[in-house]
Each structure stands twice: as structure tokens, then as C-alpha cells.
Design a protein around this nucleic acid. Structure first.
Lengths: 217, 217, 217, 217
DNA sequence: CATGAATGAGCGTTCATTCAT
DNA sequence: CATGAATGAACGCTCATTCAT
């Protein structure tokens, strides 16, 4: 039986069991972390096994293919890890809000702050989603996947606000995308003079969202 | 020690003469066009001389380096060409407007329509700006360059509107980036069900821009 | 941005351990030997990975860069190997001599004989030293390196002879270079008619050295 | 009839006539000079048409192949030019001497001085002779050619000295080669501390030659 | 006399991956 | 769990040369 067909060599050892040995999990985490940093710093095109190996401080690239099988699966693991981190950090902060307007503000705050403090993870995710392709050359993750962690949380709020009458009528899909883009734009803006603080950015964005969504008086 | 200095073998000519032979210009245009299509379809990472050669229907990749020197200079040429096209198509449409609000609407209309009808050029530009790096690994074109053709035109309008009292106070840099992002988001949105027409998208965006910028009554 | 730093993919290992696996050492020796022969026969300019691969009888040029990293490092390895061989063969033959004159004669004998019987190694070293350049175009090994293995051994003898009063006053650096050159010239001379035997060459050279260095009576 | 088969395109125009137009001769001289400088500075391996073109300040490498046909023929022309210069500068200085000893001294003086003052030409010649190969990979100019301009003048003097009884018996071929090598070594020596003046070098060499060749008293 | 346009072959290097233990 | 050795394919780029005017 062939051992490697796109599957990690370790995953098949305990067939069926979702658990992984402690050492293996640690190794995987170490490699994923190195991959995130490399993606953020060098970009997808320069993110090679050799560079990841170097940053992770491991002896051979063989260790990477040993634990993840192929490069694509490593990218999957990175995406999963980043998505998990974002979800854990953001979702709970929106929970307490009762009004759609409040929820929207809370969500934007949470999101922009997380993005600002986890730029490497965000860049890594972005690099993968926009560049990772399969053998035929088609993007493996559409904008869909990119949107999921962040936009997915935004659109339900917008829909709820329209249904409750808090918000005016607009295309919720486009508005969600716009707000998500605005959040990313804020990170770009913060890097440029004249300097804006994180709090100022948050305020600008929540104001913008409020004005763009509220029902005309 | 390098002798070509990364310059096209055909370019130099003693004086600063902008002249280029007819045949050479045609070849360059042909290659640039093939490069744009390849970038849009295959992404920066898969945009190789071999693929460009194939799409351009020329005999050898040598023809590319003959006319452009290095890959980096070809990318420069692509960026220049796309920038020129966008400028020519967009700038004049904003000229006639007297009010900031009218100019903003006109600019958004012009921009979203151009982007919608020139998606290959836009994708090509995006791929280059986000992925092209120099030998040391740093991005050759910052977000600055990306922003120039589009954002540069947006921000002056916003500033003028604030000065004339038409617009409320907000950070013009962030607002320009947000509107630019929203335009790109509209393209993404149009590709997803439920379907939105171009006109509907334009309306959504101009409405959003109006609400976000107008002075509170 | 480069990750391999021009290092062999197999070399690193955390500590400064001189150990290399048996198989790897054998492969390296095989490749170095093929490189020496190629350099001697085809010259530095025609010494390509493809030719070395062919002569070594290995499957791919990739094996060379796998074991040596870059071409420059392969050249380094060749130089090191040839230097080692020469040192081992020559140095001990001079050890027993008490007088400077005797040492000089012994050294010349040993050197000319080694050079005559290891012409490939000598040519390889010569090709590298005179042609190998770095990226900026400067010679990587000055005449210094070339001289080291052979001249370095010559000059101390000359200095000792002057100090002991055996030799007349002359510039030891120039004399050492001259004798080294004369040894190389002997190899050239042997290839031309009328034929000279190795022993005759040695005699001619030792006589010349004796006459040129001895104190005037 | 094909115009180019290893022959310069201009040479065939005035078939049979050894004269060349003034402009063509000037161009050829300009290119040869640039080739000499490039060979001396960058070495044979890096002496490309592109670099020569640049240094000569001409518009296209096509001009080189136009005037010289192939690279090999350009190298021939360089060799011819350098040989001519050396011959013109050296030969007359030996003319007036009556004794072999005097002629030898005069020749060494003339040769070392010319070499010292024309290092680029010497390096160029050396680069060509040691590296230029034909399509099959064999050196196009043996040591023979290198030796011609310089050694050729040395050996007759040595032979004459032996016949007249001035010099002792030794192999004139090896001695000539040795003295030629010693002259080149002097140039190397002069570049190294402790500094030696040209006059000192000449004195060291003529003394050495005298001691090595004179009849034992 | 000079130039423009084109070209195939070859270069060293980098890549992810696979076959062995 | 980890490593060593090997590999074919592809990359951008440089080379001298040739077919046209």
C-alpha cells in the first residue's frame, strides 16, 4: 500500500482516530507558525519549504512533508488555524448586543482590533486565499473562504437590522463586503501619515457604518 | 559586472528619444497584452515567460527578454499600460462636475464601470502590486502605486467637499481607501448570486458614498 | 531572502561536527573528481554542471547542487581537495634536510615531480584560481591562494638560507615566485621536442636554483 | 553566395585588396581596444559582445560581428594587435648589443618594462591564450603562441651565448621559459608588499639571469 | 557602413516531492 | 518520529549568431 497520496504520513498511523500524539501536534503547530510568519513576510510566492524549514529551526524540509503531506495541505492547516484564532477572538465580543446597530458597532470594533493585532495571521490568510492554486491553475479558495471568517459574521447582522426596521434597504452582500474591505483599508491607512490611532480608526469606521446603514430620518 | 543593467537590448539610443520603431512597439504591445491576460488568468506566480510566449503566439521567450530586458521591466510596462488606460478612460468623465457631491458620484460611476469592463487589466495590476518583489524580497510597488490611479483621483474630491462645506468631517485618506475598496468589492459582489446588475451596483455605491460623506442635517 | 545561503542542502547539522555520512562523502568525492577532470580537460569556461554530471556518471545535475549548494562551493571543494593532496605529497619530503640548499633542492624535486604526475589536479587548481569570479566580477582567489600550497613552502627555505649565510641577498618573494613559475614552465617544456626527461628537468631546475641563490665565492 | 562564413562582412567587399576603408579601420581599432580592456578587467569568461559593445560606446553588438565575423576572429585581431605592439616596443632595444650577456640583460629590461606599462594588453593576451577554445573544446592557441612574442626573442640570445662560450650548457628552451615566467612573476611581485620598484625588479631579474647562465669560473 | 529584429541553445539555480531506512 | 539521498521539471536569464533591410 502506498503511504503518501496527498495525505500526511502521520495521519494514517492511527487510522480513524482524530487524536494526534503530543509531539506530533507540537511539531505541526511549530511548522504552521513558521509558515504564517513566512507567508506574512515573504509572500506566497516566496513561501517555500526551505524557508519554512529555516524559520521553524528544523533539520529538513522532509519534516514538513512528513507531517503535512503536500504544500497544499499545509496551506489548509494554516487557514484552519488562522480562522480558528479569529473566530475565538471575535465571536464572543458580539454576543451581548441586543440591537443590530450595537451588534454592528461591536463587530466592527472587534474585527478591526483583531486585524490590527494579528497582522501576520491576516496577511498569511490573504496570501493563501489570493494565490494558492491547484494543479490546473484555478484558485483553491475563492473569495468565499476569505470572506467566511469575517464577512459571514457581518451579513447576518445587516439582515437582522433590515428585518427589524433599524436599517434602511440596501444589498446586504455588497454592504458586508464593503465594511470588510473598509476594515482592511483601515490597517493600510494606519501605516500612512498623517498618523491615525487605532481608536480613531475604529471611530471613523463605526460612524461610517452607522451613516451608511441607518434608516433615513 | 552585469552589462545590460536590466535594460532592453533594443531600448537605449543615445539621446532621450521617446521614439521606438514601429515593429518594436507592436511587438511590445503584443507581449504586454499577453502578459496582462496571463496575469489575470493564471496569477502572478504562474505568469512565466513560457506562458506569456505561448499566449502571445511568439516563437521564443527570448523575444520577451529582448524587448523588455527582465521580467521586472515587463511588469513595469504592464503597470504603465494599465495605468494609462484607466487614466484615459476615467479622468475626463469627472471633468464637467461642479459640486463635490456630483464629482464624487461621477467618479464612482466611471471607476466601477471601467473596472467592470476591464477586469483583466485590473486583476493584472492587482497581481503585480501585491506580489512583485525585488531580489531582497520587498514588495516593489507599495499599496501607494496601486492606489494612485484610483484613490489619487478620489481624495481630492473629498477634500474639496470638506472645504466647501458640502461634506462632513472625516479622515479623507481612510474614506478614499474605503470607497476604492468598495468599488472592488462591487466587482466581487456582481459575480455572486443573487445577481446584481452593474447599474444596481453603481446605485448602491453612490448612495453609500452620499450617506457616508454628506453633512448631517 | 535567499534561504539556502549558498549552502549545501545536506551540510548544516547544528554543531560544528565534521562528520558527514559515508554515502554523502563518497558522492562528494565522486563529483569533485569529475569536476577536476572536467576543469583540466575543458577549462573553467566549459566546466558546467552538465559536463560534470556526465563525467561523474550521475543521473542529474541536481545531485551536484544538492551536495554542494552552488557552483562556487564546488570550486571551493575542488581547491581544498587539491591543496590537501599536494600538501600531503610534498611536505614530508622536505622534512629531513638540514641545510637550506638541501631543503631547496628537495622541495623543487618533490614539487616538480608531484606537478608532473598530477597535471589534472594542477590544471584544475589553475583554472579555478585564474578564472573563478564572484558576482561583482572580481577574482575570488587571488594569486595568493594559488601560491599558498607551493610558494608558501618555498619562501621560508630561502629566508632561512639567507639568515644562515648559505644564500646571497635577493628578494625572497620574487625568487620564490620565479622558482614556482620555473617548475610550471618545466611541465610545459617537457611537452615539447626535443624531449626532456623528468629527471633532466629536475636537474636543470635544481642547478638553476643553486646558481641563482648561492653566495658568490 | 553566402556572405558570412566566419568571415567579416566588410572584408569581402574589396575582395583581394588588403586595404580597408579609413572608417572601418577606425571602428575595428575602437572595438579591439574595448575588447582588450574588457579582457583585462573582466576576464575571458565575462568578455561578451554586450560588454565590449558597452565599453566601446557603440550602438549594437551587431557592429562587432559585422566587422569581425565571429568572436574567435575578434580574439585573433586582439592577439595580432597586442603582438604587434610588443614587438615594436621591444625588438629595437636589443639591437645594439654585441655580447650575449648584454643582449640578455637588455631584452629582460625591455620586456619587464613593457609588461609593467602595458598590463592590460598582457592580461588580454594571457586571457585569450589560456582560455580561447574552438568548437571541439581544444585550446586554439597553445603555449606556443603565448611564447612567441616574448620567448621567441629570448631563446636565440641564449643559444648564441652558448655557442660563443659566454654561457654554460643548459636547456635553452627551459631557461627561456623560466626567464619569461620570471618576468611575469615580477609583475605579480610588484603588486605585493614589501614594495619593490620597477628598477629593483629589473636588477633582481638581470642578476638572476646572469648567475643562472654564466659559465662557471 | 550600419542597424533592427529575432532566435535556439545553454546556463546555474530553485522547487516540491518520493524512495529509502 | 525523524532523517538522508535523490530527482525531474521548471524557472529567468545570457550567449553569439543570423536574416532582414
Amino acid at each position: 500500500m502506498r503511504v503518501t497520496d496527498g495525505m500526511s504520513e502521520v495521519s494514517e498511523s492511527s487510522a480513524g482516530s482524530p487524536e494526534r500524539s503530543l509531539a506530533a501536534s507540537a511539531r505541526r503547530a511549530q511548522i504552521v507558525e513558521a509558515a504564517i510568519e513566512t507567508l506574512a513576510e515573504c509572500g506566497h510566492g516566496q513561501t517555500t519549504f526551505a524557508r519554512i524549514r529555516q524559520r521553524a529551526g528544523i533539520s529538513s524540509t522532509r519534516l514538513i512533508s512528513y507531517h503535512f503531506g503536500t504544500k497544499g495541505e499545509l496551506m489548509d492547516a494554516v487557514l484552519e488555524e488562522v480562522g480558528l484564532r479569529a473566530h475565538q477572538a471575535i465571536s464572543q465580543r458580539v454576543a451581548g448586543e441586543s440591537s443590530a446597530s450595537g451588534a454592528l458597532t461591536a463587530r466592527i470594533e472587534a474585527q478591526v482590533e483583531w486585524v490590527a493585532h494579528n497582522s501576520s495571521a491576516v496577511r498569511a490568510m490573504s496570501e493563501i486565499c489570493r494565490n494558492e492554486r491547484d494543479a490546473e491553475g484555478v484558485l483553491r479558495y475563492g473569495v468565499e473562504v476569505t470572506a467566511r471568517a469575517n464577512v459571514e459574521g457581518l451579513e447576518p447582522i445587516l439582515r437582522a437590522g433590515q428585518e427589524s426596521g433599524e436599517f434602511r434597504q440596501f444589498d446586504t452582500g455588497l454592504m458586508a463586503l464593503t465594511l470588510k474591505s473598509a476594515i482592511d483599508a483601515a490597517i493600510v491607512r494606519m501605516a500612512r501619515p498623517p498618523r491615525l490611532t487605532l481608536a480613531q480608526c475604529v471611530h471613523e469606521l463605526t460612524t461610517l457604518a452607522h451613516l451608511a446603514t441607518r434608516k433615513e430620518s
